[in-house]
Design a protein around this nucleic acid. Structure first.
Lengths: 110, 110
DNA sequence: ATTGTTTATCGTAATATTGCAATATAGCAT
DNA sequence: ATGCTATATTGCAATATTACGATAAACAAT
């Protein structure tokens, strides 16, 4: 096969997996971090920052956008991409809750 | 191509991407959540919990283990898998820091 | 109108992932 | 020793991802 079977999992599980998957490539992590570093941003900068061809970077940006991790506005010739706070906040809350559960755990097996 | 080019990114970027990638499948998110729910765990339970064949679940467990998200001890006949707190803590800190940076951000473009 | 700049899309090749049946392995129980 | 149970591995087919060159689209500037 090769196609992920999403139908049997909860909406939240699929949503977390979808965001995580988008972050599952170092180039996309690097893009996100670069967008955080500069306050406003144009893709041309990103291409220069990364060891990848323009077409590849564009493709990565598209995936980040599809996953809701970034949002972009057309600004004349260029496009302004920004981190989408909502997705980051969602992941932050998810791992925070998980972390809390682990700390409150008494039983240990491993 | 198809092979991810890790050499040009930082160790941390590769590390975050690697953990995120492992979580980039709803079945693996579901496995992690199930391991959180029960305190101690055996893989047989996991197979029954998921809509996937035993071989597929075993493969997903292997990936989670490779990414450092879970750890497992052999216990006689079965294997006891647990969430590895270190990986969760790492992700939690990563997103927390990112979230803080976003909150302190003044400039907005999108 | 032509040129240059920036970003997206298409086509394609290489590689990775997903999923499962079949089989192997390892320990437990009889 | 034989069978039973739990997990891993192998082999394979279907699909997805990664990467890039070539090209297109959209706009700005001359």
């Amino acid at each position: 096969m090769g196609a992920t079977n999403t139908t049997h999992f909860t909406t939240k599980q699929n949503s977390i997996a979808s965001i995580a998957k988008a972050l599952g490539h170092p180039a996309r992590v690097a893009i996100l971090e670069y967008l955080m570093k500069v306050d406003s941003c144009i893709c041309g900068d990103i291409v220069n920052e990364l060891p990848l061809a323009q077409a590849t970077v564009s493709q990565h940006l598209k995936e980040l956008k599809n996953a809701g991790l970034i949002k972009g506005n057309i600004e004349g010739n260029a496009i302004c991409y920004c981190v989408d706070e909502k997705a980051i906040a969602k992941m932050q809350k998810y791992f925070e809750a998980m972390n809390l559960k682990i700390e409150n755990k008494k039983a240990k097996c491993c």
